[in-house]
Design a protein around this nucleic acid. Structure first.
Lengths: 211, 211
DNA sequence: AGAAAAACTTGACGACTGTCAAGCGAAAGC
DNA sequence: GCTTTCGCTTGACAGTCGTCAAGTTTTTCT
């Protein structure tokens, strides 16, 4: 077999793999939206397929089993979620601007992508029961922590201070506010959400030393 | 019908109600342990009955449906959970003692009752999807917040300072540390748990003003 | 002790689940 | 242009689910 023939076969193989991966991703995204709507406990393969343009059998053509499908969907979430605040960090020129724009973005995505976020918490909790999700969950969680830390350390820098806690403490604090705001948002308790919004700047200030 | 006869019937009725409630509670506790082991998504009525000394049909004798049963189980969790730290608050005579004993109790129950705690987070998340859990979840959550606030305000008092954040921020911070420690504990990552244990005192100090 | 009521078991129902084999039309390769 | 492979659909499978009616055992009351 010549080199030319080999590279031709390779091209064909690569194109097939690309098509395969593209459809896999497409189905994983459809899965993500169904999961966001129904939650992990109530999502069936037939329901997922119904929210896509394919039949339920196709899922076993692209995924080994349900776990494989949902794992891939979780990975898709990461792509959507993690880079939200980087632009805020990059463009802010003062501490107040960074803090205010962070808070605005925070509550923007809270309302805008509420169902997607509740899915994330759902899957993170699943990993407390199901070992097979843990590796992906821990990886996404660490990316979220790093994102928070970029915000907090830049904020401290702009304030001329230092971060007051560890990355872990900073993350769980802001993530905790988010989780709680999400709960009250979905419960229709707008007052509680507004109060958390009012308290968030102070919470951020607790995480950096006074200038 | 005479007064005597009435009060006699009342006694009988009350005894029946007591028996009924006692068995209901017994089954709810069995449900709680099965839920803690399997998680909400994978817990069936037959499995619950198998972990009790009764057959699966009895559940519909004492509960209207699955939702009714699980709601009652959630309420049982509250009884178990909420008063853990009150003794620590009552007996501590110095800020350091309060803080150290709080941290010790915190990580004690984390390891001891890990499955029960993961169930709580599971059900709190379910309430993001299922409205019928929300009222109970919000009530339990507010009791947890109040408990944290009793610890933090007493700690501030002993230190001669004031709480630095709101009850909500104090709660989500400590609850966030707990949630994260639980995840790493169940993942078998003892190092991460130890690190969170080391960071928790500093996190507590962030929540009160310097003396 | 006998009758009535409560407590519990059993078995069945329809619906739904994940999985997979068989078969189809369309595209790709020679 | 014929054949093979690919992408996808359909239908069926074995199992599990919540629910409930009918029947049995146990307790309670007179």
């Amino acid at each position: 077999m010549t080199d030319v023939a080999e590279s031709k076969q390779d091209r064909i193989a690569r194109r097939q793999v690309d098509k395969f991966d593209a459809r896999r991703t497409e189905l994983a995204v459809a899965t993500l939206h169904t999961l966001a709507e129904l939650g992990y406990a109530r999502t069936s393969l037939r329901e997922i397929a119904q929210n896509s343009e394919f039949s339920h059998g196709v899922l076993h053509y692209y995924f080994a089993d349900k776990r494989d499908l949902i794992t891939e969907a979780v990975r898709q979430y990461e792509v959507v979620c993690v880079t939200k605040y980087d632009e805020v960090v990059a463009t802010a020129t003062s501490a107040e601007q960074l803090r205010d724009e962070f808070v605005a973005t925070f509550f923007d995505t809270l309302c805008q992508d509420a169902t997607l976020h509740r899915l994330w918490y759902d899957l993170r909790n699943q990993s407390l029961f199901d070992e097979s999700f843990r590796a992906d969950v821990l990886e996404i969680d660490s990316h979220r922590e790093a994102m928070v830390w970029r915000v907090i350390s830049r904020y401290a820098e702009l304030r001329g201070g230092e971060p007051a806690g560890s990355p872990a403490v900073a993350y769980v604090t802001l993530d905790g506010v988010f989780q709680r705001a999400l709960l009250h948002h979905l419960a229709g308790n707008a007052d509680a959400v507004a109060q958390l919004r009012a308290e968030l700047p102070d919470a951020i200030d607790l995480l950096v030393t006074k200038p």
